[in-house]
Amino acid sequence: MSSEETTNVQVIPADKAKIKHIWTVAGILGFITTLEFIVAFTISTGMLKLSIFVVMTIVKAAYIVGEFMHLKHESKVLMWSILLPMIFVVWMLIAFRYEAGAILDLRGW
């Protein structure tokens, strides 16, 4: 029974270019992580370091969501349905960061 099923299934040979693309994205993710690691110990704490980290994180996230999760190649409606709601998160992040400064002032430490 099982041998009969196996013979019925057609295994399509792997597309070399596709596999290579996957490993390229993996290489980019690994490279950025290494770069983050270097930045962590070479640039002093401040706005510049923070910005570099945020940009690198967004680039990594874009590769994971766009390529690995395939969102870049889905319909545009789906892509924006997922990405646009995240604007609320960005707003929340900024609002609460601002609020934190006010709380610190009030505490008077």
Partner: peptide, 16 residues
Amino acid sequence: FSALLVTYGMVRYSHT
């Protein structure tokens, strides 16, 4: 997860 990370940001920066 965003809520947790935003909370982290807020709590961290309301400390010295």
